[in-house]
Design a protein around this nucleic acid. Structure first.
Length: 479
RNA sequence: CGGGGCGUAGCGCAGUUUGGUAGCGCACCUGGUUUGGGACCAGGGGGCCGCAGGUUCGAAUCCUGUCGCCCCGACCA
């Protein structure tokens, strides 16, 4: 057994040895992405893109069930449009890419490649919203955006990344706030139930909020190394953009009003989150909801009479109720075991001569490597059961790890000490002042992740300055 | 953008100090034997040594520049 493990560990760097290398090893060896010739931009390979497609489909169904519609906005934003909202342009200008020429001609006004599309949506809304009867507008788009990031990492931070951005307009602030909360919950539900990633829902501090937003909410997940990953975000804009873009409508009382706005997004970064939440030293571990292959069928001694036929027949049967695939290539079984573990396939089905004799097969779980000998007539019930157990198991394991790596600091020394010595999240009270937040960043190396919706009263005073506390904050290091 | 490391076959590397025209393992191709945890034997294909200049009779090797990637920091989904 020790021998077996050794061989497989050889394939990728162990996460204890070098977490960053472990991550890039998985991303490459599971064939999720490849580097491209463009700095910071990646090729998402078929297997990685298939995961994204499952995420997209799942989220898109959720959005549509909540009344949203998909649209497509231009990829370019005229400079004048980007500049309409002051905070927004200040936040994004340092990292936008500019188009200055069309063919050989210099453009009269340069165009930025969208880093996010608030301005485009607002420009459009200013033309189509006239009456309260035009509201709400519940739009979403699936697209890629470009941010000229200085350092990049596959899926976690790339210059171009794929995402969805929802942009909605509402008659009242209350409605827009409700939308912001609803979409935050939508992401949380998707992440927790389908991706098996426990998240902390909370509000960002002013320092960390989106450029131009009144308030920003996030779902934060903890990775294997204790760092936080913002995995989805939902903003309430109030009427700031509406005023900047002169979006007005006639209200029920026949007065001119500004609509209230939200935006919310989730990106291919979630793929990085999956890797760093569930992955292990044998590779990726995928939750069934987004696994391109849920069950890989591996014929054993496939040259022997009847094995391949039986394996193909089983695969066809499996395909009627789950995403199944057979690998009948002539690689050795051991190679295939390792290969599909690397790719994170939740269940492996082995079928060989001995099994056929007994009318059974072997199912092996990716997460625990537990083996189950299953009668062939039970597959329709056993496979969904095992997939569900695996999903729950992944969630519980991730939650237990997060809890074990979450600390409480009631004194400043304690906060600094934890920040330096304990990877993970730290709960501590905060007065709400930027100076304290910056001091904590400077001295403890911790940024505020969010102020959780589920607040706890650790003490009455700010961990940093000792003045009365306004909120409990999760502090940590982030991707 | 600062600090560090690295670019030689698809991948991982040796060769660079001391210039002499490129090698190993894996992968790939062919044939055969194998097949319940990364199989074995035999044969074979593949490289403007990141790119551009320079020095030299001769450069993977020395010099200059440049591009890219990775890691650690500051900024961000």
């Amino acid at each position: 057994m020790a021998n077996e493990n050794k061989k497989m560990v050889d394939a990728i760097t162990s996460m204890d040895e070098d977490f960053a290398k472990w991550y890039t090893d998985i991303v490459k060896k599971a064939e999720l992405m490849d580097y491209s010739s463009v700095r910071g931009c990646m090729v998402i390979q078929p297997y990685g893109y298939a995961i994204w497609e499952h995420m997209q489909r799942n989220l898109d169904d959720r959005f549509k069930a909540l009344g949203h519609e998909n649209v497509a906005m231009p990829m370019f934003i005229p400079e004048s449009l980007l500049q309409k909202e002051k905070d927004h342009v200040e936040g994004f200008a340092p990292e936008v890419a500019w188009v200055t020429h069309g063919g050989n001609e210099q453009l009269q006004e340069r165009l930025c490649v969208r880093p996010t599309s608030e301005t485009l949506f607002c420009d459009y809304y200013s033309r189509v919203i006239h009456s309260y009867r035009d509201l709400p507008k519940l739009y979403n788009q699936w697209c890629s955006v470009v941010r000229w990031e200085k350092t990049t990492r596959p899926f976690l931070r790339s210059v171009e990344f794929h995402w969805q951005e929802g942009h909605t307009m509402h008659e009242t602030a209350e409605e827009a706030i409700a939308e912001t909360e609803q979409m935050l919950n939508c992401y949380a539900d998707f992440l927790e139930n389908d991706l098996a990633m426990p998240v902390i829902k909370g509000k960002k501090t002013d320092k960390e909020k989106f450029a131009g937003a009144v308030s920003t909410y996030s779902v934060e997940a903890m990775m294997h190394d204790g760092k936080a990953l913002q995995s989805g975000t939902s903003h309430y804009f109030g009427d700031g953009f509406s005023k900047a873009f002169e979006i007005q409508f006639s209200g029920r009382d026949n007065t001119l009003q500004y609509p209230h706005q939200t935006s919310w997004g989730a990106s291919t970064r979630m793929i990085g989150g999956l890797i760093m939440t569930h992955g292990d030293d044998n590779g990726l571990v995928l939750p069934p909801a987004v696994a391109p292959i849920q069950v890989i069928v591996l014929p054993i001694a496939q040259h022997k009479e009847g094995v391949l036929e039986k394996a193909r027949e089983l695969t066809a049967r499996l395909k009627t109720f789950c995403r199944a695939k057979i690998d009948d290539s002539d690689q050795s079984p051991g190679w295939k075991f390792a290969q599909y573990e690397m790719k994170g396939v939740p269940l492996r089905l082995e079928i060989g001569p001995k099994d056929i004799e007994k009318n059974q097969c072997v199912l092996v779980r990716r997460d625990s490597r537990e083996k189950y000998f299953i009668g062939l007539e039970e597959l329709e019930t056993k496979i969904p059961e095992l997939l569900e157990e695996l999903r729950k198991g992944l969630y519980e394991k991730a939650l237990a790890r997060r809890e074990a790596m979450t600390y409480t600091a009631s004194a400043y020394d304690e906060l600094c000490d934890l920040g330096e010595n304990k990877p993970g999240l730290i709960k501590a009270m905060w007065c709400g002042e930027l100076v304290c937040e910056e001091k904590i960043k400077q001295e403890a190396g911790l940024s505020s992740r969010n102020m959780p919706l589920e607040q706890e009263q650790i003490s009455d005073v700010c961990v940093c300055c000792g003045k009365p506390a306004k909120a409990m904050v999760y502090w940590g290091k982030a991707y």
